[in-house]
């Protein structure tokens, strides 16, 4: 029985976290491309140095935290709170391209989720987006699906951090470029960092939300002005 229960959750979770899952993440570098073009990320070491603030600052204080807060709101069936965090995530993102990337990916999550499951919370979120109360954010879409699948909150948050990082590593492998093996090594090396990040998220307060990584944000803004780009953000 235990094995069945785990399998029921494990396989859908693996599917949602697969970097081939068509959420559009492969089109968005969230400023990484600026670092690559400016020659500041060029190999495994410099990419690892980039991934550190991406996880420690951006994912911990913004995307991962949104995932946690959305999950907690779902526990309470508090759909207004979902709108609150969706809106805060949109206005916190001061880089237009990164903001729009999240909106696009968030809407894709909703669409894919509803193609595959019948989730009332997701239908409500879709209506909130359609009526312009909400913008759409992938962390919220992910939280709703994970919550529906009965995946415990700590696992859901950690899985979201993993999928964001894994997508970004795939983008790095293509954009820098790096060998696939180097990419997988990076992902393996980051396992404890991701676990620590999930633990940190668990200890944060709503007031902590949204503090920026100044360097990442600046590069996300500068991405708009790059001449040749393979990523949309």
């Amino acid at each position: 029985m235990l094995v069945t229960a785990m399998t029921n959750q494990l396989l859908p979770l693996l599917q949602w976290c697969d970097s081939n899952f068509p959420t559009g993440a492969f089109s968005h570098s969230f400023g990484l491309e600026t670092y690559i073009q400016e020659g500041r990320v060029s190999d495994k070491e410099t990419f690892a140095a980039w991934l550190y603030p991406y996880i420690q600052e951006q994912l911990v204080y913004t995307d991962g935290l949104i995932c946690r807060f959305a999950y907690e709101a779902l526990d309470k069936k508090d759909h207004d709170k979902i709108v609150y965090w969706d809106r805060l995530a949109a206005v916190q993102n001061l880089s237009r391209e990164s903001r729009e990337a999240n909106i696009k990916m968030g809407r894709r999550f909703i669409q894919l989720g509803l193609e595959m499951y019948d989730i009332e919370d997701l239908r409500i979120y879709q209506k909130q987006v359609e009526s312009h109360q909400a913008s759409g954010h992938p962390a919220i879409g992910f939280a709703i699906i994970a919550h529906h699948l009965g995946i415990p909150k700590p696992t859901a948050v950690l899985a979201y951090l993993y999928t964001c990082t894994s997508n970004m590593i795939q983008n790095g492998v293509r954009g820098i470029p790096l060998g696939q093996t180097d990419g997988q090594r990076l992902l393996q090396d980051l396992q404890s960092t991701l676990q620590k990040a999930a633990d940190m998220i668990d200890g944060l307060e709503p007031d902590d939300f949204g503090s920026i990584s100044p360097g990442l944000e600046l590069s996300q803004m500068r991405h708009e002005r790059l001449n040749v780009r393979i990523f949309m953000s």
């Binding site: 809106r87 805060l88 206005v91 001061l94 902590d208 503090s211 920026i212």
Partner: peptide, 14 residues
């Protein structure tokens, strides 16, 4: 609410 900006600098850990 149209803009939310938080800068948090902690040189000990950053």
């Amino acid at each position: 609410l149209a803009v939310y900006d938080q800068v948090r600098l902690q040189p000990d850990i950053q």
